[in-house]
Write a protein that binds this DNA or RNA. Sequence first.
DNA 1: CCTGAAGGTGAGCAAGCGCTTAGGCAAGTG
DNA 2: CACTTGCCTAAGCGCTTGCTCACCTTCAGG
Lengths: 212, 212
Amino acid sequence: MGAAKETLGEEQPWAEVSPDAARRLLIAAVDAFAERGYHATTTRDIAGRAGMSPAALYIHYKTKEELLHRISRLGHDKALAILRSAADGEGTAADRLSAAVRSFVRWHAGHHTTARVVQYELDALSAEHRTEIVALRRLSDAAVREIINDGVRAGEFDVPDVPGTTLAVLSLCIDVARWFDVGGRRTPDEVGALYADLVLRMVGAAPERAQR
Amino acid sequence: MGAAKETLGEEQPWAEVSPDAARRLLIAAVDAFAERGYHATTTRDIAGRAGMSPAALYIHYKTKEELLHRISRLGHDKALAILRSAADGEGTAADRLSAAVRSFVRWHAGHHTTARVVQYELDALSAEHRTEIVALRRLSDAAVREIINDGVRAGEFDVPDVPGTTLAVLSLCIDVARWFDVGGRRTPDEVGALYADLVLRMVGAAPERAQR
DNA sequence: CCTGAAGGTGAGCAAGCGCTTAGGCAAGTG
DNA sequence: CACTTGCCTAAGCGCTTGCTCACCTTCAGG
């Protein structure tokens, strides 16, 4: 399915950020924020990682917070696109929920530095930027809730508390960014598969392999 | 002061911290760290919330990091005690897993300010303190894994990947501290009940509709 | 009464912070 | 050529940070 867009998964991250110096600064900021947190990161550190002087940062970004906002915005856009692509796909609700969780988790594990900044540094955003981002998060919530509602309507799922289960599913996936370790034994693909199975259990979908 | 009654009939939190001024400072630090994060909190802010001058902090604590360490240590001790109390209880593995999740989640929701600091400010600890805390976390992991293993051995659970599922269960519970909102519609008890049900589904325990 | 310990304060230091400014250099355009 | 434009740096400004220090107050024991 979607053979023409097959290569999009391998695209260069942050390709939409230009010019080159701005992208280098943004990547350096992602690394630094993920490693130490936004407030513990200095603008000198970011510029240093990008191989530039501290003042260079302010040519491409108005403030340190604008850098965080750009990262958060792009990351949330990407995360939402992943969820929607799965939600709008073909197949049963179980198929779509499984695909959504698998790809969402794979992204959080594979891009865990970015995801960590995106998911855990919201408080550092300005009030306006935060409300903008929170709106995006509600759309993610709606995408997942829609799949679950479809499954319930179709009789595939058994979910007593749809909003609560939606919250739990998203929370479970998001928290992958906190604990995922590149040096660990699990690959992003493996975690995605494990989590897809766990989530299908949470919604009471009939197990595919054997009935019990 | 403003922080509502978190005790739920239990004893006064932080009762083990003395003298009184040290406890007031610690409670102020918990509030400030939870609200703004460790690095964004100033020692002046902590002292101010406790109604004291900035210098007073250093009579009771050597550094700002020692304050965080004390909070983190006490919080992890409490969380581990909750898990172990449920793990060592009576009943089937499903009963014990359900009880563990319910009380663990209830604590994370009811004491979400403390839990937020405990779970999300580990990186701000010094290297030595962090390894001490990480050891405690491994014990929590072991407590949950033991219950799940018991259930698998007894034929109560169907869990293909025990370490992975253990990780997911703990991750799910911990993340409650991130999103729980006092102003929200759910009480800590309700979230605990919902999550206990979800976790039983994750381990493939036979649904006990009568049980709640 | 005096004395010393315990617990507090006001003032402030050295370091580090986010961010600004003045200016340099290379490339493109009339 | 002169001039603008884009990108970058060295220097540093004004402020805040974690933390210290000289000093004050309270109070129990002799």
